[in-house]
Design a protein around this nucleic acid. Structure first.
Lengths: 341, 341
DNA sequence: CTGTTAGCGCATTCAG
DNA sequence: CTGAATGCGCTAACAG
């Protein structure tokens, strides 16, 4: 069963030429005669030759592979980012290795080390919610492997970020709720150690202040932004008899949890309580027209991050100056656009 | 910037010992003295040594990596399969390389060749809807790389499949609708070249026959099982004034399309029209309680497929006899279990 | 245009 | 227990 270990030497021997010529022919070098090239290609085919990329990569010291590290591929935002990354990467002949941290620091660390050990040419990362220090990127840094962060800001000096304006998004979301007449707006907030959630929170606060609404700290619920938390916190809000007429969730998953809970309790959205979350998940938002969302440009974010990364990979000698790209996000109001229900 | 290329030779030189000893120490071989081992490990740490897996893998002729090829990671079923695969793989110290075919034969072919070139130790595949011949697996076959198929049956002799009983699932779905009083049941069918969709279709037919309902070929709609198709076909059904009281969709995505279309038209589900699709997508099904689903055990499928694959990898000399594992799927009726609405 | 030579970094013989 | 030698398969000088 374990067969077919035909190498360039085998095909060189079969043709009574040198293996370097074979190597050159197989990488379509111009420095080899059409005729011999054809002979070699034909023989290679006929012998069932398959290049060993391990050997090739070891020799060339590149892998043509970029690593992608993100919390969860099942979240639609992230899978649309992957979409963008793959498009941009394949176009330039790069492969993509996708890894999920599952929001766990330990896993993220392992992944980064594995990617480094596998000598990927560059890495695109959206850090986990648990990640507060960046020492685990040292193994990439020390080898000069380019790194681009997206969605969740990371301020390691010298690296690039591709983000949306989270302050603005938080502001817009809150402003939207206020304009709809909401006055008691709960905020499901994420870990404040992460810029992204801090900024969304600050945007929320700024919108309240601008509209002369009081900021109440008991309206700010610290959550881990998962669905279970979203459900539990909403239930707790109801039990506590804290009056509120809207929720602005710092991500989509917690918002989904809130919707589920409110549905269960027979509370109508948005008539009784309005909700805004972040998302570009088509299924949850279009089928369920009660969730107004801040739409994040996932595909574009993936593309931009990849383009930046590849530029860094190719320009490694003269690294670009670190830049932060801010993409536009847009608020989508399902109530006013959805025809259904 | 391009720095830190410390190899076992560097650390050997620094300690004035031989690189083989270093190599042994770093792979924790028992054939090296505790004392020297400690010295080496310490020095390695201190010099910032990182093993080059490319070189190591080339030498050992294994990669400790398995490839996964599936249509789309954004579909919840597939991402839960990945969940299962990663769990089982990491436990055994394997890495996972995830690739999406996007239901395109050409992409699938490229991916398989890339995986083969990268010398993965085994591959887990759910073939694309376009895939009707299996020649592109030859590059793995010829090297004796183990291969396990899941969800979408593939009958290359000598390889394993992990599936659900699609005939039974199709039967159950249809039976369920009949028991609810539906008599005019549309079937959104997939490519009949694929066993999976043929079997679901056969199950549908069998249930009709068993219940003395007529089988009508105009009730069977060939679709590509994507959302756009689901919407378009539903709209067409309505325009054609073909009477129907239920849809059994051969996957979830087309069912989602149907729901969207019916929502738009103000047709109530399930009062006017019932729908059954395949899914284990929590968001779409729980929030939207109108979609009854055949639940597919994604995580378990991933685990079983991986266990099988790893067994094959480890037993390569004496390959297991090809087996097909059939897992249970269960019908989940949102109408009777959902408390909401 | 082609051959020769020399490694990429590591793991594994085989000797001691 | 450690050292010396060899080569995994490929590519990149450098000659010719």
């Amino acid at each position: 069963m374990e067969v077919n270990k035909v190498t360039i030497h085998d095909i060189a021997r079969a043709l009574d030429i040198n293996s370097s010529t074979v190597s050159r022919a197989l990488s379509d070098s111009p420095r080899v005669a059409k005729k011999t090239k054809d002979r070699i290609l034909k023989k290679a085919q006929e012998m069932g030759y398959q290049r060993n990329l391990l050997a090739s990569n070891l020799r060339k010291n590149i892998t043509n592979t970029i690593g992608v590290v993100l919390p969860r591929i099942s979240r639609h935002f992230f899978s649309s980012v992957i979409q963008g990354i793959e498009e941009a990467a394949y176009q330039e002949g790069y492969n993509v290795m996708i890894c999920q941290s599952l929001e766990q620091y330990e896993r993220e660390k392992n992944i980064i080390e594995t990617l480094a050990a596998n000598r990927v040419d560059g890495v695109i990362v959206s850090i986990s919610m648990e990640t507060v220090d960046y020492n685990h990127f040292e193994c990439l840094k020390s080898r000069g492997v380019p790194l681009v962060f997206f969605d969740r800001h990371c301020d390691i000096p010298g690296y690039n970020n591709v983000l949306i304006d989270d302050f603005q998004a938080g502001f817009d979301a809150t402003q939207h709720l206020i304009e709809k007449g909401c006055k008691k707006i709960i905020h499901f907030s994420g870990p404040q150690e992460l810029e992204i959630y801090k900024n969304r929170f600050e945007g929320y606060k700024a919108a309240l202040i601008k509209n002369d609404l009081p900021f109440r700290s008991d309206y700010v619920i610290k959550t881990r932004l998962n669905e279970v938390d979203g459900i539990a916190n909403t239930k707790k809000l109801l039990n506590d008899k804290l009056e509120f007429d809207a929720i602005f969730s710092a991500n989509d998953v917690a918002a989904i949890g809130a919707i589920k809970c409110l549905n269960e309790e027979g509370i109508r959205i948005p008539d009784d309580i309005s909700i805004v979350g972040f998302s570009n998940e088509p299924i949850s938002t279009v089928i369920n027209p009660t969730l107004t969302t801040i739409n994040q440009p996932g595909v574009e974010m993936g593309q931009r991050a990849t383009e930046l990364l590849l530029k860094n990979i190719q320009n490694k000698k003269a690294p670009l100056k670190p830049e932060t790209i801010i993409l536009d996000s847009s608020l989508i109001d399902r109530e006013s656009t959805g025809k259904s229900h």
